[in-house]
Write a protein that binds this DNA or RNA. Structure first.
Lengths: 109, 109
DNA sequence: TTCTATAGGAACCTTATGGTTACTTTGTAC
DNA sequence: GTACAAAGTAACCATAAGGTTCCTATAGAA
């Protein structure tokens, strides 16, 4: 139960992994990279992703400032998620992770 | 207990995160980026990293083909770890993760 | 007036990951 | 012959992350 140090990371790169890490966040960001999405659209596109983990992941991405959440005051509810400025700055990284992943999968065959 | 699908990833980028993910792997790779290291050197440099998690992480990186392990047949034992070719191909990614992490930490202040 | 659609919360369980402690092996130095 | 060094392994525990099921609110449609 030690207090958190001023800088909780050994390396800045860990901050990046903390933001995009987790089982589904990359996939969520990948969809948002193509444009805004509502919750129900995520549910249809990624049926294996449970409601709970979806909203949890979206909340964390929102708190990290990577995506924005817009609530339309209507019934039934409508909530739209999209990339923020900060989120867009991640694009290069996401692309590179994908490229190296392809290379790696190929190299391991 | 479902069988693994042919491709266990939704995205190739997930393969990358699987390789470098975990609490200590980035740090380990960061040290190896500067040159070969023996186990005892890791223990001194990263005292918060337990023996168990260290060897476990090194094993996984080795299985991923990212690092190599060389055992010298002597007593007391001597084991040296270093980056492989494949490991070196990760360098750009690691750098970018670090750069974005710095940017992000700054942007969040 | 009952049903539907949408987004989410609450309670609970399971598994993965990380951490701790104690033990092992074996040649050399004291 | 005892102690030490290096690189582990084994058994165990704690916490985090992910997953399941059921519940809620509310306007309009049937």
């Amino acid at each position: 139960m030690a207090n958190q140090p001023a800088q909780p990371y050994n390396l800045p790169a860990e901050a990046t992994l903390e933001v995009i890490g987790g089982k589904w966040k990359l996939l969520i960001l990948c969809y948002l990279n193509c444009g805004p999405m509502r919750t129900s659209e995520f549910r249809k596109e990624i049926p294996d992703l449970s409601q709970k983990v979806l909203t949890q992941s979206l909340r964390e991405l929102e708190e990290a400032g990577i995506i924005t959440r817009t609530v339309y005051n209507q019934v039934p509810p409508k909530v739209v998620y999209e990339m923020s400025e900060l989120g867009n700055s991640l694009r290069t990284i996401l692309d590179q992770l994908g490229e190296w992943g392809e290379y790696y999968i190929e190299a391991r065959k």
